[in-house]
Amino acid sequence: MEVQFLYSLIVAVFIGGVAGYLGSLMITKRMALVGDALGHVALPGVALALIYGFNPSWGALLVLAVGIFLIWLFEIRTKLPMEALTGIVFTASVAIAFLFLPESKVSTALIGDISQINFWDTLVSIVLCIITFLVLKKIFSKMILANLNENLAQVEGINTKKYNFIYLVCIAVIVALGIKVTGSLLMGALVITPAAAARNISRNLSQYSYGALIIGIISCILGVLLFKIIGLPAGPLVILTASIIFLISLFFKRR
């Protein structure tokens, strides 16, 4: 097995796993489409990276930091639903990106390209994934409680504003990393689909969150292996694998 392929596979597995875990929280908070939207928010950063030849994840992360800060700020100022604010920021971002994204790079920006990834990008991606996972694991139950009843969480001393912010930062990191795998158009599925499949078959919270993590990993392994075998782009293959797992989960759905 060549080293380049191994890098691609490892990066996809780490990102897919954490994205699935994060997705279980996002679906619970009814923020499933936020991953999708943020994938689009990141487009100007991806476009810059593709033009100047650096890793799209880092471009995406920079733009996402700005985008998410704006959404967070708007929410505090306006009390409008976060999805409405995200909608405003993401469409504006797409508009900006398409002003300067070269036509030859459109496909890579939209559906990703994991075939070219070097050692350092791999290492940084793994470290970021591990840190994000540990942070999410720490805030997970607090976020679920706050989602169940915000007052109850506050009485328990949970600073919901702070945790929401940390949670958004985690989303930004995973979306930025995921864009490398699935591109900005398909990023949303990497967080939604594995978690939705896990939700169908799980009885409790730990089955749900770790189920999503495992399904995310399986989707990425199968998708990237298929890419190696049949040569079609990895991003769509990963997402289609996850979608098929979701369909299978329907047969095992708990009432």
């Binding site: 619970t28 679920i144 169940l148 009885r203």
Partner: peptide
């Protein structure tokens, strides 16, 4: 509580 939320009674208590 949403009927579809996979949160068991035990896990609810274990928030504490």
């Amino acid at each position: 509580v949403s009927k579809t939320l996979p949160l068991s009674v035990k896990e609810f208590f274990q928030f504490k």
